[in-house]
Design a protein around this nucleic acid. Sequence first.
DNA 1: AAACCAAAATAAATCGTTTTAGCATATAAT
DNA 2: ATTATATGCTAAAACGATTTATTTTGGTTT
Lengths: 341, 341
Amino acid sequence: MKKKLSIVDIANALNVSKTTISFILNGRAQEKRIGAELVEKVMKYVAEVGYKANSLAKSLRTGKSNTIGLMVEDISNPFFASIARLIEDRAYKNGYKIIYCSTDNDTQKTQDLINMFRDRHVDGYIIAPPEGIEEDIESLIKDGMPVVLFDRHLPNVSTDFIEVDNLFSTYNATRHLIDQGFKNIAFVTFASHQTQMVDRVKGYQDAINSGGLEATVKEIVFNQDEALIMNPLRDFMKANPQLDAILFGTNHIGTCGLKIMQELGKKAPTDIAVISFDDYDVFELHSPPVTAISQPVEEIADNVISVLLEKLNDSSVSTKPQSIILKTDLKIRNSSLKGVS
Amino acid sequence: MKKKLSIVDIANALNVSKTTISFILNGRAQEKRIGAELVEKVMKYVAEVGYKANSLAKSLRTGKSNTIGLMVEDISNPFFASIARLIEDRAYKNGYKIIYCSTDNDTQKTQDLINMFRDRHVDGYIIAPPEGIEEDIESLIKDGMPVVLFDRHLPNVSTDFIEVDNLFSTYNATRHLIDQGFKNIAFVTFASHQTQMVDRVKGYQDAINSGGLEATVKEIVFNQDEALIMNPLRDFMKANPQLDAILFGTNHIGTCGLKIMQELGKKAPTDIAVISFDDYDVFELHSPPVTAISQPVEEIADNVISVLLEKLNDSSVSTKPQSIILKTDLKIRNSSLKGVS
DNA sequence: AAACCAAAATAAATCGTTTTAGCATATAAT
DNA sequence: ATTATATGCTAAAACGATTTATTTTGGTTT
C-alpha cells in the first residue's frame, strides 16, 4: 500500500516550495512569473510520479467540490433513469461528478437529502421537487446556490426550471381520443398537487369540455408497495365498465393499468383504448402497441445541464430565472379504427 | 446568506476549547472524562444554533468520507436501476452516500472513473466490472480498499462478489424449451468474455448437448446506438427461419428481439418461443407474456451492501473473500402447448 | 556606492476538523 | 510533606491543499 503523494512530497523532491508547485499546477505560472524551465521540470516530475491533488483538501480550501447533487423521484423509474444517465454523461464531460438520490416525493426525506448535499458542499442542485419543499429550495437560492428544477416547478419559488408542456400534451392526447369517437374517457393518475400533475389534469379536462363530454378523474395515492396501487385501480376499472378509453398520467400508473387489463382479460384498444404519459419499451412492445406521450428526455437533460453549468460559471450575474418548456410527442400507435362495442 | 458556523464559533460562544466540543460531539465525552453539565450545555447550544460539522474537513482529517462508489453497466437499464435504487436505500440507512456512474463496459472509462472515486476518497467500491479491469481492481484491493463485485466476477482477482447461478439458469431455461418439444433453439446474446455471459452460453450449450440438439449461438456486438444492435439481429432472424425458439442473454437484447419479431410479424410463442434473461415489465406485459429468468434483485442488493458494510466496519480482519451465488427464478409464462409449425 | 526595480520564489496563514500530548487541580496514598 | 492517581479540560499539530504577503536575487539607475 504505497502512501499517496502530497504536494509537499513533490516540493521536497524537487527542492522547491509547495507554493510554487501549486501555482504551476493551477496554470498560474505565467501570471506568477515562474521560470519556464522550472515549470517544465515540475510538470515532468508530476506526470512521472502520477501525482494528483487531494480533492478534499482542495475543496476545503476553495469551497468548490465539483459535484452536482441530483434528486429524482425514483431512479428505478425508466423516465428518471434515462434522464439521470444523460445528465451524468454531460456532467462528467464538464468535470463534474454526480451524487444522486431518490426522493420518493417524500418531503421529509427530501429535506434530509438537501441537508446532506449541503453538508457535502455540492456546487449545484438539480431537483425534481416534491410538494412542500418550497422553503428549503428558497433557502438554498438565498444562500446563492445554483438550483435547477425539472419535470415540475414550484409556482411560488423564482428559479430556473425545465419541463414539458403538460397541459397541451394531455389536451392533445384527449382530443385524439375524442376525434376517434371515444365517448367515455377517464383520466387516471397519481394524487398530487405538483405542477405537472395539475397541468395534466387540466389539459384533460379542457379537452373533455371542448368535446362536450363528461370528465372522470381517478386519483390513486402513490405507494412503494405496488399492490396498494393495483387494488384501487382494479376496483375503479371494475366499477366503471362503461369506459371506452383511459388516459394514464404517468408511465408507472400506465403500466399498472395494463397489468390490470391483462388480469381482467381486457384488450387495448378493442375493449378499452389506452394512452399513457411517458413513452417506454413496455408501450412500444405491447401488442398491440400503446399510444404514448413521449417526453424529449435528451432535450430535457441537455437543457438542465446547460442551464446549471451557465449558473455555475458566472454565479456573479444573477439574470432572470429561465423557464424552459419543451414539446412532447404523441406517439400514435393503435391508430386503428375505433373498435368499441 | 448567513455564514456557516464552525466548531470554533461554538467554542468561542461557550468559552470552551474546540477540542472539548469535538470530543463531546463525537460521543467521546465519557471516555475523555468531560463533566456532565458541560456536555449538556454544549449539546443544547449546538442543537439550538443548528451546528453541523463540515464533512469535508472531517474527511480530510479522518480519511473517511462516508461515501460509496457504485459502478453499474448502465443506470438506465432497469436491472441495474433497480439494484442501484435498493443499494442507495440501504446505504443511506447506514449513513453512507452513493456516488454512481455507468461504465458502458468501457475499460478506459471505468479506469477513469475508478481514479475519480479514488480521488474523492470513497470508503468502498461496488462494481459490476467490465473486461480488462483486473489490474485496477487488484491495485484497489492491494491498497486496502473494500471492494465488492456483483453481476459478474473476475476469475483471476480474489475478492468478494455476488452473482446468480448463470450456468444453471440458462441450462434450466433451455431444458424447459426442450421439454416442451422445441428442436431449433438459438441463444442470442451480447458478445462478451465476462463471466456471467460465458456461464450463460455454457448453460445453454450443456442443455442443448444433453438433449442431443444442435447449438446456434449468435453474438451481437454491444453498441449505444440501438440501430447497430437491431440490424445484425434482424439479419440473423431472417437468415434462420428454421428456429422455433430463442433464448436471449439479457433483458436489453431480449427487448430488441421482441421489437424485431414485432417488425417481422412473428408472434411469441406460436411462431417462435422466447425466453429472456432478466425479468421486467416488458416481458410480464407482453401479450402473450414472455417467460423470463428473473434475478433476485433485492437479495443481490442486500448481499452486496451487507458484505460491503462488513468490510467497512472491520477492515482489520481480512477473512477469505466471499463468493455468494444466488438462485434465479424461471418465470414460466407462455407455458401453453408448443405451437410450432 | 547607494537606491531602486523587476523577476523568481517562498513563508506563513487559512479552510474546519480530529487527535496527541499535556496542563492544572484535587484527592488519596506513602 | 511528598508522591501518585484521577479528573476535567485544552494547546497545538496534523490532514493537504490555496492564497496572501514577503523575501531573495541580480541587474539598472542615479
